[in-house]
């Protein structure tokens, strides 16, 4: 594989549109490709993907392969692996980049091991080492307590990238690039699983990923009520969304889909208000990118105060109503 060249980004499309993470990794891939002076190709796998190929060009790709097939509608790894194996054989890239999404984190290791290499998962930063032309990948380890830079000599180098870790290019509809269909004859005997159903558990209102303000609660809230009352009220006043640390999700106080953290949603709102959250490294991994973190916690030693910009030490039952009353007054 010594002759492998260029960068291959595996993109994701929902309802005919590129996912934001795909634009982000195309941005990251473009920067690496320019440094290497090589091509950036993009694979889109799915069904009825509309103009997503053009959008991928506008987001930085030189060539986009579109594997559009009814059988590829739902992600399932033994099916998608067949496309990826053929894709890698055709493009022979030196670097493969995917998003650290439900699908990317499932597909990247399988593809890597198939190719006899290991992926570097959930990266925060990708760079090219000038001397070796190898990619160096920075990622968080030990729950976010430390970072490590990884590299590998084995080609292709494969990395997945965390949501919101890299910035997309400004979409440029005038960019030149080819969009070509990519046909795959799926071998039914290799398909080992089938998707029976997709169950959506979306919460009403603004999505936590898109909200400019997030009011999050932790184990310290003691039950489901404060989430539906105080936190929901405050989120409404701030035109934001309600989030949670893991224990409220595990305890079924709130839906799993609003968990913030390493294994939940990675968000970066303007304002993150953490109520009754101790600030574990795993939780902070999901919100450390916020512009302003505010903490309300009764324990002055809580780690959250090492991460927050503003804090109040006290029982949320007392602090929060007074805070909310004043916020309401100020925003009138």
């Amino acid at each position: 594989m010594a002759d492998n060249k260029g960068i291959l980004v595996v993109g994701e499309v929902a309802e005919g549109k590129l996912l934001p993470i795909t634009a982000e990794i195309l941005g990251a891939g473009r920067r690496l490709a320019d440094e290497l002076k090589e091509q950036l190709s993009c694979f889109l796998i799915g069904a009825q993907m509309g103009d997503a190929g053009k959008a991928a060009v506008a987001a930085g790709a030189d060539k986009v392969y579109v594997a559009d097939d009814a059988q590829l509608k739902d992600y399932e790894n033994s099916t998608y692996m067949q496309v990826m194996e053929k894709a890698v054989a055709e493009v022979a890239p030196r670097i493969i980049i995917m998003g650290q999404t439900a699908n990317g984190r499932d597909l990247a290791p399988r593809l890597a091991f198939k190719l006899g290499v290991s992926a570097v998962m959930d990266c925060l930063e990708l760079a090219i080492d000038q001397a070796t032309r190898l990619m160096q990948c920075t990622r968080a380890v030990y729950g976010g307590n430390a970072k490590a830079i990884f590299t590998s000599e084995a080609v292709p180098q494969i990395a997945t990238v965390r949501t919101k870790a890299s910035s997309p290019l400004a979409p440029d509809a005038g960019r030149k690039g080819d969009v070509v269909p990519f046909a795959v004859a799926l071998d039914a005997s290799k398909i080992k699983a089938k998707v029976l159903q997709m169950v959506k558990e979306e919460v009403a209102g603004i999505k936590i990923e898109d909200a400019a303000a997030v009011v999050a609660g932790g184990r310290g809230l003691g039950g489901p009520e404060p989430f539906s009352k105080e936190l929901a009220d405050l989120a409404r006043i701030l035109k934001g969304a309600v989030g949670a640390s893991r224990p409220p999700c595990d305890n079924k106080w709130v839906p799993d889909s609003i968990q913030v953290g390493l294994t939940g949603k990675i968000i970066a709102p303007e304002l993150y208000i953490a109520v009754g959250i101790s600030g574990s490294s795993q939780h902070m991994s999901g919100c450390a990118g916020s512009k302003c973190i505010v903490a309300i916690n009764k324990d002055p030693e809580a780690n959250i105060f090492k991460e927050a910009r503003f804090g109040v030490v006290g029982d949320w039952k007392v602090v929060l109503p007074a805070f909310m009353a004043k916020v309401k007054e100020l925003l009138q």
Binding site: E307, F310, G311, L320, A322
Partner: peptide, 16 residues
């Protein structure tokens, strides 16, 4: 971290 202190936690909340 700017820890907001006041005479009572409620006042600290308002001050925040």
């Amino acid at each position: 971290c700017d820890i907001i202190s006041a005479d009572s936690p409620a006042e600290a909340g308002a001050l925040l």
